[in-house]
């Protein structure tokens, strides 16, 4: 019996040891390093282990607070738009089509696996001064001079982020909607609830967990977006991701960049808690 127990432990170690070590070394340790760095500082291009809260104090300046605030606003806006755009699609896929379900589902998900760099770049072609949209507007005689706020603006960043992350919203919502018991919906209809009332009072509340997860899946990467604002944001639309990247790639201020990153993670954590609480199906215990 003891031998068997030992064998069990050996086998468990064989299976769980390597992945734990790997993730411990390449995920936990780096994140811990980042936390440490955020309390250190840089002197003459050298990182000094000099415990300080100065990096967090710098974050509290209007400059960085402003960028954080605008990033949160953009990320929330992207999340809301994704929800409005994506909900009907998920609903249609899950409940209204049988014949095209597979193909449509795959089509919705495929872009999610394509490079977001390429998808961002595509918007440069569309929104630029000589881009497709401006050419169309000028061709139709709607404007003489190219519309310049299309690219390098909050508009461009928001549009591209919606484009990139809307499948992230649709997928988890679809999974929830698909599992809804059709008998429940039938019953609601039989009880005299119209189509709308059934949707509002039965389907929508039951689908909230899916909405919450979808929102989170959109909010998280939008909050940390770097490639998209960097390429489409220009001078007028700075997001915190670019500022973080700058601390590591340009300013050599790892401590400040680390403090910013931890703050982003904290915001994500708060958002996750709020989203998931809001998404708890009615009637479940807290």
């Amino acid at each position: 019996m003891a031998a068997r127990k030992t064998r069990q432990i050996a086998a468990a170690t064989a299976f769980l040891g390597p992945p734990s070590l790997w993730i411990g070394a390449l995920f936990i340790l780096p994140m811990a390093t980042m936390a440490l760095l955020s309390f250190w500082r840089v002197v003459d291009y050298n990182i000094v282990a000099d415990w300080t809260l100065a990096n967090y104090e710098r974050l509290a300046r209007p400059l960085y607070l402003g960028i954080f605030w605008r990033t949160i606003k953009i990320a929330l806006l992207v999340t809301v738009i994704c929800a409005l755009v994506g909900y009907p699609v998920a609903y249609f896929l899950a409940r209204k089509t049988k014949r095209f379900q597979l193909i449509l589902l795959v089509l919705v998900i495929l872009p999610l696996w394509t490079s977001y760099l390429v998808r961002t770049y595509a918007w440069m072609l569309i929104l630029g001064t000589n881009g497709a949209v401006n050419q169309a507007l000028q061709g139709l005689g709607l404007t003489d001079t190219p519309v310049s706020w299309l690219l390098y603006s909050d508009f461009a960043v928001t549009l591209a982020l919606v484009h990139i992350y809307v499948p992230f919203f649709i997928l988890p919502l679809y999974a929830v909607l698909e599992k809804l018991d059709p008998r429940l919906l039938e019953a609601a209809k039989d009880l005299g609830g119209g189509r709308w009332r059934t949707f509002l009072h039965v389907t929508l509340p039951l689908s909230l967990p899916g909405v919450a997860t979808g929102c989170l899946f959109v909010f998280i990467p939008s909050m940390g977006a770097f490639v998209t604002p960097e390429l489409l944001g220009g001078a007028r639309s700075i997001m915190i991701g670019s500022v973080v990247a700058q601390q590591f790639g340009v300013a050599y201020d790892y401590p400040l960049g680390s403090a910013m990153s931890l703050t982003i993670l904290a915001i994500i954590l708060v958002a996750a808690t709020l989203f998931l609480r809001a998404g708890r199906p009615a009637g479940t215990a807290p």
Binding site: L26, F27, P30, M31, T33, M34, L37, I220, P221, M223, G224, A225, F226, G241, V244, A245, F248, Y254, G257, S258, S261, I264, L265, I268
Partner: peptide, 11 residues
């Protein structure tokens, strides 16, 4: 976010 994973690894 990948950005944070990337810089954490770099650090």
């Amino acid at each position: 976010p990948h950005l944070i994973l990337g810089i954490a690894l770099l650090g």
